[in-house]
Amino acid sequence: MTLFVAVALLAAVVTWLMSLGTLRFALARGIHPPVRERDVHAKPTPRLGGVAMFAGVVAALTAGAFIPQFQAAYAEPHKIVALLCATGFIVTVGVLDDLLDLDWMLKLGAQLVAAGVIAFFVVRITSTPNPFGGIAVGSSQMSIVLTVVTIVLVMNAVNFIDGLDALVAGTTIIGSAAFFAYIWIISRSLGQAEAYFSTASVITAVVVGACVGFLPLNWHKAKMFMGDAGALMVGLLTATAAISVTGQIDLTVLGGRSQILPAFIPVLLPFAILALPLLDFVLAVLRRLLNGQSPFAADRKHLHHRLLDMGHTHLGAVLIFYSWTIVVSVGCLLFLFLDEWVAAGIIALGFLVCAVLTALPVSRRVWHSARRLARLRAAERRARSRRQSKVEAGERR
């Protein structure tokens, strides 16, 4: 565990130092795109944070190659090289998009290329876990297609929610920390250190470190954004780490546990962590297609925009996302330790609390409106009473 923390810390320090340098460079050269209609920030802000995060990822993954305890993850060095090449490519495309606003078809093509590199040279989904043993995906072609589609889906889901300060960085830290905990628990329970455990653990630790290092400059009010470069990179690495375990592990090795839900944790946890980004992605695509638009056309109707429209502050909306992410990610882990009904009850309670917090501004408006209406009606009654009293007094005279 100490070595994983050290690698994450290296990624964080390099990212933070590079973020400071990148921010200074961007401000000195005026590299900050103008504020768009859908943006929620008021002044032009550099979007080159992804470059600094990539530097932290490269430094940490390179350092990991010299740690003997990580040898399982680096047993096939070409996979790490391919991962860095795919990541560097998608970061480059992301930077160009942030600066030049590339056509959506070009961006999608670049995402397919990066995901294809991962599927061909790094890892692919070969089976889907289930309580009774892994189910083979089928042909190698089907495995590649499923892997590419999954990675592209995750990249866009993460990119779609990158609209508020510290939103992607914070939710990634929370979700990836939960995923790392799951990997650690399972690998310790098996008493093994297979390559897919080690690879997923190293990548996840590096992603957490890069997000931690970038968070100080991205916290509200943000001095710099990670941009498409950072969001797509986080999505790519997160998906790769999830596939390294989800598509490889056979859960029958867990000792024949009779619980059904824990057996699905490898599938549920990555999607639970990305529940809100995936929901936002699906809703956005459906909304745009129904309106006759490109599925990648930008608008101001994402979930985080709706939270702001409901009355949440910028920071409040981000914390709402954090709370939902904590409930779904930690909730999945509870199935490894608690009875299924107890874990489900705790998750339900967490959902209820999050729902109340989410609806709080609306509830306040309804409450205030009801109070104003009650005051108006009371004033009307008093006015009618005064008029009636005057009429009665006149009649007596």
Rank of each mutant, 00 (worst) to 15 (best):
M310G: 06
P262V: 01
R375A: 09
I260V: 15
L336G: 12
A379S: 11
H312P: 03
I265Q: 10
S329Q: 11
R287I: 04
A284F: 01
F281M: 07
F281D: 02
T313S: 15
A275H: 02
A317Y: 09
D299W: 09
F321N: 09
R257L: 12
L308I: 04
V330T: 15
V282F: 13
V356Q: 06
F351D: 09
R364M: 10
L290Y: 12
I265D: 11
R377G: 07
A344T: 15
A344Q: 08
L290W: 14
R257P: 04
P277N: 08
A298E: 03
R287Q: 15
F281C: 10
V328F: 02
I347F: 09
V342H: 02
S294Y: 06
V253R: 13
L283H: 13
R382S: 03
A317G: 14
P295H: 04
L360Y: 06
G345V: 11
I265R: 07
G256T: 14
F335I: 07
L274N: 00
F271C: 11
V356C: 05
V285Y: 03
V362H: 10
V356T: 07
R306F: 09
A275I: 01
V353L: 11
W341T: 09
A370P: 03
F335S: 03
R371P: 00
V327I: 14
E380R: 00
F335H: 09
L268A: 04
R371C: 00
A348V: 11
R300M: 13
H312C: 05
L336H: 15
L303Q: 04
L303C: 06
L376C: 06
I273K: 03
C332P: 07
R375M: 05
G350E: 09
R381W: 04
L319G: 00
